[in-house]
Amino acid sequence: MVVSHVNGTTAGGGYALTASHLQVWYGDFHAVSDVSLEVPTHRITAMIGPSGCGKSTILRTFNRMNDLVDTARVEGSVHYRGVDIYGPDVDPVEVRRRIGMVFQKPNPFPKSIFENVAWGPRIHGFKGDMEQLVEACLRRVVLWDEVKDKLNQSGLSLSGGQQQRLCIARAIAVQPDIVLMDEPCSALDPIATLHIEELMRDLAAQYTIVVVTHNMQQAARVSDYTAFFSVIPETRTGELVEVGPTDRIFDSPEEPRTNDYITGRFG
């Protein structure tokens, strides 16, 4: 698969998200220390690293998903459109509407396919033509032709790959700016994975995408930028090692640890 990688810092669009000095604790456990990261607009940023390095945790701070964990505590700031989403006046509901999320395991609602897509717009007060919106979203994720005759069937009746595309349709139905994807292909077979990857490239024209992946080939295939995370063995605290255009990270990483990881000497 050929993808056009972008060289240089940003392709004119600026940054969709700017995280500075992010730290996350779970209770007493210091999960991630001091992450500063810029997410370029309308690009795919991949976050890679060994297990337990905090990449998913960082992803979840981007739309305040960690609020749902009672013990989680976040320090630092994440600026979105000039506003710190951890600021005192910010409603996480509004944040999540603009920064959507797709999860590791496909998790459609136990409702009809139509309802899976329509529920988000409905709770946000969408008054327009719902059927049209649902169709557009399902077409966007290349699922429409497969499900157009069974919109009333359960979302759980679909195959894993279809379910994940349904989840992406659900995420984009509320018209977000940014879609966060937490290992979206780890529960899928290679063919379904390929479909999702194609879809990600396709969506990048319209959305900013941040994807966490275990799979370095996937990061190399789809992403424009790559952030490499690692874990400090003594404290098991995650940290950001290096971030840059994917080409550069994979061809000539600056940090020896990055090199060790992508060449498979350490994982």
Partner: peptide, 27 residues
């Protein structure tokens, strides 16, 4: 009720009550 369902609901930006009312309770 699996947390993945709650995450799915919060992921599209619903409030706590909407999550409870439309997803957790029916389940």
């Amino acid at each position: 009720v699996p947390d993945s369902l709650r995450e799915a609901a919060y992921g599209v930006g619903c409030t706590r009550w909407q999550c409870v009312r439309w997803h957790v309770l029916p389940m």
